[in-house]
Amino acid sequence: MTRAEEDDDILAPFFAAGRDGPRPPETLYNLVAADAEALRPLPSPPRRQTSPLRAFIDALGGWPALAGLTTAAAAGVWIGAAAPDAVRQVAGIDAAAGYELADLMPGYLSEEF
């Protein structure tokens, strides 16, 4: 038997007896649990799945910005489709008369023809 084997032979029952080791007192579990609770980070709220539409709206600036854009678009359509008299007067347009090319580009017509 080598020296190392002899040492192993001597130590085996001591290691077997010591393997379980001492058990911690109940108070230690309570103290550790209290520390864990005191230091526990706040749970993060669950993440919502973001739809493409939602991402688009968020990119525009959210619902308030979308409402503003919608209002502006509707106003533009209304002004274009049913321009009130006040707009015609300010613009100097007589919608009923229509337009000729000469009205829009008088200089071009006079030079070429």
Partner: peptide
């Protein structure tokens, strides 16, 4: 999980690791 705020994870870790830490320290 504890780092994300999970209290149950803390309880499990306490039960698992305290005996090891205590045993090693005693020795």
């Amino acid at each position: 999980a504890y780092g994300r705020g999970d209290a149950a994870a803390a309880r499990m870790l306490t039960m698992r690791l305290v005996p090891r830490a205590f045993r090693h320290a005693v020795r």
